[in-house]
Nucleic acid binder design. Structure first.
Lengths: 338, 338
DNA sequence: ACAGTCTCTGTAATCGTTTACGGTAAACGA
DNA sequence: TCGTTTACCGTAAACGATTACAGAGACTGT
């Protein structure tokens, strides 16, 4: 009894047949009943299971898809992930998650490393897009769809949200409910969503004649609760806002927490609204008004685009956008006093 | 220009050298400077990147580790994941997440499918453990560590929490702060953690002389917020508890939400405590008392065990346990009236 | 009885790498 | 000058599977 895993050769020898026959019965091709019998019993006598690596080398398919996200702790990716999984599982693919932190180098290594190898296709949602990433995307031959804005000439399928529209809806909503000093706790502005949201915020404030002094603007160095807590203190103290928009739900949650600790009531003193409309928004107290950027829909579309490209690798890259929708909850209700 | 990806043969031809030389310079083995030059320029002229599949077939390593969790939406797995990732990244492994839903068949397919192929090692945290899974674990040759209780004779490394101890701490804490009708919103009792926690709850209540009528017991059919909301209504209405223990933080959050909707104050009318002490516990209002089962520590230990086994495949399987710790927050403070 | 079909099986090539092995030529020492 | 060491390089054999191809019987129909 050799120590290493049994191979198809060993099974063949043990069953007294050829390797071809073993492969055939294991893949359910036409064979005689007694052949099936011999091979099957030899196989599970030895505890054989095929080497996936060797198999995919030959057939050039792995039956796996990779989904790369920036932060598994962010519920927005959970939504996307579920949608992607639901869509791709039906086609028999296994889904592999991979969490690249905030560092673009990670994404890059993924694009070059895993990209050509362990998966038949890739969905990625990079938070920072560097020139190197763009370049790698140009060069990539693996079917790929990216979630998030990329330059129009990058030849991959693309689905994106309308961040700017979302910010606009949020600010208009706050304006309509009487808020005038609206703060913005953004994520890092060297990220794709960060920069889009910053720009949009400035524009809509200008249009509505709202103040945009620096004291009303804060930038967390990550789209996380911890980073939000670090950054929001100043905004609250120096900006004296009557409303705060969070760059995503996590930042909004951090804002609520900081407000509570400092004795400000939400929404009576300060309204808070988030972005992404994740499950988090429903569990906080008060529940969080949030603008949905369609994470589930984006995941679904990304999966569909990927599956279509898998079927037809040569078709034109497509790009689709999904529209935002405001979900009003308690954190932005009208003041009860006033 | 051929359409398919360039191979080592092609860059060899293009550089006018042998494939062996190409492989050598690409792997940084000893070669002359001019050889390095020729190969390098040929390689990136063709945009060559090696086929990971073929490579790992030969060297029998993928440099990848797989971590399989039941529900990516559960923050407890996020904690574990981060810990595992931190530990394994240092050794140069890439971490692949894979989300098997609540269905044991998924785990099984993972154990047999991905198990022998795309990863050098596997960490899994199955929520249900069937005979088939036990059997597959006996048969597995891939280095594997499971997080969660398994029968003692299963020959894989194992790290587990002390659920029972955790439940005990939670209930004692509630008892000491004056609660007498303690409800329990558990997850499914056909799961490993579900059954352990149910048993422990019964025992500690008996010991303390607390009532355990059926009206105080509820069982959600998943460890999620939605399932919790479905199941907790009855418990609140019929059980009239003055405290509720959630089988995990998600169930506790669901409980708080349901209580709020029905006009009960937390903690004044009803105290709530969760288990797992996830990030969620800090963002709710009131903040959630929760017993930490050491998710980060468990992830860390699991990763270390796996790495050790990777270095020495023949050593004895180890099993370690991590102890719970109660984290008191606002949701279980003493009543202010009374 | 024989050509033609059909069904099953085995031999060997192949996927894209790595690497053991052997050969060649330059460098070295005496 | 002539072995011997050293440094490189190329040829070919793996890794473990799939599959094109061809051969071998077993049928069929005439």
């Amino acid at each position: 009894m050799s120590s290493s895993r049994p191979t198809v050769q060993r099974v063949a020898a043990h069953a007294g047949v050829s390797v071809a026959s073993v492969s055939r019965v294991l893949n359910g091709l036409a064979t005689s009943p007694e052949m099936v019998d011999k091979v099957q019993s030899a196989a599970d006598e030895l505890g054989y299971s095929p080497n996936a690596m060797a198999r995919s080398l030959k057939v050039r398919r792995t039956e796996q898809l990779a989904f790369s996200v920036a932060d598994v702790g962010n519920p927005v990716y959970v939504d996307m992930m579920r949608a992607v999984e639901a869509e791709t599982r039906a086609e028999g693919y296994r889904l592999l998650l991979s969490s690249t932190g905030p560092d673009p180098a990670e994404v890059l290594s993924l694009l070059r490393g895993l990209a050509h190898g362990y998966a038949d296709g890739l969905i990625l949602s990079p938070i920072r897009v560097t020139d190197e990433i763009i370049e790698a995307l140009h060069a990539i031959s693996l079917p790929t769809v990216v979630i998030g804005r990329i330059p129009p000439d990058v030849p991959v399928d693309n689905v994106r949200a309308n961040s700017a529209g979302g910010v606009r809806m949020a600010v208009e909503h706050l304006y309509e409910t009487g808020r005038r000093r609206i703060g913005f706790l953004n994520g890092p502005t060297d990220t794709v969503p960060g920069v889009a949201r910053a720009r949009a915020f400035g524009r809509v404030c200008d249009r509505l004649g709202l103040p945009t002094d620096d004291a009303l603007l804060a930038e967390a160095d990550d789209f996380t609760i911890d980073a939000g807590l670090d950054a929001v203190g100043d905004l609250i103290a120096r900006g004296e806002p009557d409303a705060v928009l969070g760059g995503n739900d996590l930042l909004a949650v951090a804002t609520m927490q900081a407000l509570r600790e400092r004795g400000h009531a939400v929404p009576d003193d300060v309204a808070v609204v988030g972005m992404d409309d994740t499950e988090l928004a429903t569990v906080t107290a008060p529940t969080l008004t949030s603008v949905s950027l369609g994470s589930t829909r984006r995941g679904q579309l990304a999966a569909q685009l990927l599956l279509e490209r898998l079927r037809d690798p040569d078709r034109e890259p497509q790009r689709v956008a999904v529209q935002p929708r405001l979900r009003v909850r308690d954190s932005s209700r009208a003041r009860s006093r006033s």
